[in-house]
């Protein structure tokens, strides 16, 4: 479903990704973790064409992404993205946030798009908030609307870039619950997160990055019980209190 090979990315003179290769099979759930500045957000942003890359190949959901990202719109919603800052459209209510791309990109009729969007909001337990504007919603609700918006495009892959980092602590769980439910439906997912409890529950594979390279990949049990790399052990120690 996703093939990244020898991905290199510079910001000016700084090398932020240094030869990343990563294959993700259909239905696989990957958690990407690592200290801040390790390049994990940059990696997911390269994978869906929000960042240009300096070298390497990316193939995702059947699309070969060009290095300058000029064909990024061909992904056309096949790759859903959930952002740390939600990035809802502030001048539209929740329902219109969901239907815009369905109507413009998938060319779904308004009635059909609204019916699908309502069903999606119900699934997120946000049916009552369909007419609410983003400013009238809590952070957790906004992020669930953002997840619903991406799901309405029936993506083959979902990418989550620190989806709970901007949330108040009491709202983190409702978003993680939605993501856990999604993971049970066989959707291919890459999640950048510091929520190690979620990683342990949901991930098929945990990928640990540091300094722009992948240091270690393993199934959750092996990753948490028997980390191979010093940097991984150090990271787990630092982040430890948030594991349980």
């Amino acid at each position: 479903m996703i093939k990244v090979s020898k991905l290199v990315k510079y910001y000016g003179q700084t090398k932020v990704l240094d030869g990343i290769s990563l294959n993700v099979a259909k239905g696989e759930r990957i958690v990407l973790c690592g200290p801040s500045g390790s390049g994990k957000s940059t990696l997911v942003r390269c994978i869906n064409g929000l960042e240009q890359r300096s070298a390497g190949d990316i193939e995702i959901a059947g699309h070969k992404l060009k290095a300058d990202c000029s064909n990024v719109l061909e992904l056309g919603g096949d790759v859903g993205m959930v952002f740390q800052q939600f990035n809802l459209f502030p001048h539209m209510n929740a329902l219109d946030n969901l239907t815009l791309a369905m109507r413009r990109v998938r060319k779904t009729s308004r009635a059909e798009a609204e019916a699908q969007a309502m069903a999606m909001l119900e699934r997120m337990q946000l049916g009552a908030k369909a007419k609410a504007y983003p400013r009238e919603l809590s952070g957790g609700q906004q992020q669930r609307v953002a997840i619903a918006r991406a799901l309405c495009m029936k993506p083959k892959v979902m990418l989550f870039d620190e989806p709970t980092s901007a949330l108040d602590p009491e709202m983190v769980q409702e978003v993680l619950d939605v993501m856990t439910a999604l993971s049970r439906e066989g959707l291919t997912m890459i999640v950048v997160t510091h929520e190690m409890g979620f990683a342990r529950n949901v991930a098929d594979r945990i990928v640990f990055m540091d300094g722009g390279v992948i240091l270690e990949e393993a199934a959750p049990d092996a990753f948490f019980e028997n980390p191979q790399h010093n940097r991984t052990r150090e990271f787990l120690r630092q982040i430890g209190p948030r594991t349980h």
Binding site: L73, L75, F83, L88, F89, A101, R104
Partner: peptide, 18 residues
């Protein structure tokens, strides 16, 4: 306008014009 607005559009496949 925050860059995230354009990024959200791109990730949804929304064309430049729209």
């Amino acid at each position: 306008v925050p860059k995230g607005q354009s990024e959200a559009c791109i990730s949804l496949g929304i064309s430049r014009r729209h």
